[in-house]
């Protein structure tokens, strides 16, 4: 089965629309959503409705820290993220908030684990940014592949039977065979706010039969997404960074 995996959509409607269309054209049979549907972007209302419709249709969706922050009174985030959360709260109705609040922290099936951040303590929202964190995350789970987001920069880690780690920055469109002999930790790039220097929206495909993971990049109308952020009075840096992918 071909999975389409999407992380950190962040209320970016043009980016998520473009990624979904690209993934459907490549024949995805199941959608997996790795959290952070809202925050930063200008279309939280549309984003939550779209995710809700996908879940009703059989998609897997887990909770992200921005989604969790909507229902919390005390939030520990930087000023811009907090301003965006504050604004987002006013955009969502109670049914949309309830949907976000009830999302699971993690979901596991057929030796694949889906989680927003590091897997040992998902509610601590730890970034998987190096081999030390990735190694800890893998050693506490039995899954063959752990998929997460949160970092906004694509990376792929593996743990060998000899206990050694590898780290790798994926090449777009080149399938990587996730050998069954080792454990893998795939950090997805962000759909709605890429930070690896490439402004194109990021998502991934995973073929559960061939065990092949492909990182994909999709060009989308980032200027439109940025304009909607500015028009809604959100912090301007949230608009500017979309154009440079930082």
């Amino acid at each position: 089965m071909l999975l389409g995996l999407f992380a950190d959509i962040h209320a970016n409607r043009p980016a998520f629309t473009a990624c979904l269309a690209d993934a459907r054209q490549r024949g995805i049979e199941r959608v997996v959503l790795l959290g952070d549907y809202v925050g930063y972007g200008a279309d939280p209302d549309w984003s939550v409705d779209t995710v809700r419709a996908l879940v009703a249709d059989g998609a897997v969706a887990v909770l992200g820290n921005h989604d969790a922050a909507i229902g919390q009174t005390r939030v520990q985030m930087n000023a811009e993220a907090e301003a965006a959360i504050e604004w987002t709260r006013g955009q969502l109705d109670s049914a949309q908030r309830k949907f976000l609040a009830e999302l699971p922290m993690r979901h596991e099936e057929h030796s694949l684990l889906f989680v927003h951040s590091e897997a040992t303590r998902p509610d601590a929202w730890i970034y998987v940014t190096d081999t030390a964190v990735a190694s800890r995350s893998m050693q506490t789970v039995s899954a063959h592949v752990t998929f997460c987001g949160h970092v906004h920069k694509p990376a792929l880690y593996s743990l060998s039977v000899t206990g050694k780690m590898t780290t790798f920055v994926p090449t777009p469109d080149i399938p990587v065979h996730l050998l069954p002999g080792r454990q893998w930790h795939a950090v997805l790039g962000s759909v709605g706010q890429p930070r690896d220097g490439n402004p194109a929206a990021a998502y991934a495909l995973y073929d559960t039969v061939k065990h092949e993971l492909t990182y994909c990049r999709v060009a989308y109308d980032a200027a439109d997404a940025a304009e909607r952020i500015r028009a809604n009075g959100l912090p301007p840096w949230l608009a500017d960074r979309l154009l440079v992918g930082r």
Binding site: T131, L156, S158, S160, T162, K164, M165, T166, T167, F168, T171, I174, V176
Partner: peptide, 11 residues
Amino acid sequence: SDQLPDLMQEE
């Protein structure tokens, strides 16, 4: 390969 993880690098 620069397009695949290098399994030997850290081994």
